[in-house]
């Protein structure tokens, strides 16, 4: 399957960016320990934001790096969806690998609802990859994309979560499910709201990736291709 070939090559590319991998692995740890002291209940949400930020950044760079070779791959016979789905699969694989040690850390370090923690981490990985790819499609220059990512994460941390703007941010669900994970007794509606928010966000972001890729790599109307 050609999607798997694209995914494999994207994984190989990411695995060779050693500096990126080290930052990917360690940055969420800094987020975690920034709240581990007096506000340890926030460390779950912060580590998920750290993972979301680093994985989105990796996706942003992967998306930008692919821009020069993707037109060639389209010409060589790939369908557009094979290209972006393959890249997404690679980024999701990296994200899943990344969250395992953080889940184990929380499992050993904190007394919280671990099922909810696992869900936050999984949803964060699911959303972060298409978020970075969508940004790379909309903002082809890496610096601009990085600034937007920084702004989103900073707003996610500082905004009152009850405001409408906060609801529109891609990682808002982590606050809802994170609260469920630590409160006792917990309101089950938090889980429901968080999961619905993540699902809608995921659908919107994947649609954006699909639409922008389809437009960028479309067959132009002036071309008429006939089999030999």
């Amino acid at each position: 399957m050609r999607i798997l070939t694209v995914a494999e090559m994207a994984l190989r590319e990411i695995s060779r960016r050693r500096g990126v991998l080290i930052l990917l692995a360690l940055l969420p740890l800094a987020f975690y320990y920034s709240r581990r002291g007096e506000a340890y209940w926030q460390s779950v949400r912060f580590v998920s934001l750290g993972i979301g930020w680093t994985l989105s950044t990796a996706a942003l760079f992967a998306g930008n790096a692919a821009r020069t070779i993707e037109p060639r791959l389209r010409l060589s016979g790939y369908a557009t969806h094979e290209l972006y789905l393959g890249r997404l699969a690679a980024l999701w694989t990296v994200g899943l690998t990344l969250i395992v040690p953080y889940f184990l850390l929380i499992r050993l370090d904190l007394d919280v609802r671990y099922g909810a923690v696992a869900l936050i981490l999984l949803l964060t990985v699911a959303v972060a990859a298409p978020f970075g790819l969508a940004l790379s499609a909309l903002l082809p220059r890496e610096l601009e994309g990085m600034l937007v990512l920084l702004t989103v994460v900073a707003m996610q941390m500082m905004l009152d979560p009850e405001t409408t703007v906060a609801h529109a941010l891609p990682f808002w669900f982590s606050r809802e499910i994170g609260t469920y994970a630590i409160e006792n007794p917990a309101d089950p509606h938090l889980m429901t709201r968080g999961t619905i928010h993540a699902t809608i966000t995921l659908a919107v972001l994947i649609s954006m990736v699909a639409i922008t890729s389809t437009i960028r790599l479309r067959r132009r109307p002036h071309m008429s291709l006939a089999a030999q």
């Binding site: 190989r12 590319e13 990411i14 060779r16 070779i69 060639r72 010409l75 016979g77 291709l225 006939a226």
Partner: peptide, 15 residues
């Protein structure tokens, strides 16, 4: 028929 294209630069993946 099928098409092959060689750009002046780019067209490859760095890693």
């Amino acid at each position: 028929g099928t098409l092959g294209y060689c750009p002046q630069d780019g067209g490859t993946a760095d890693f």
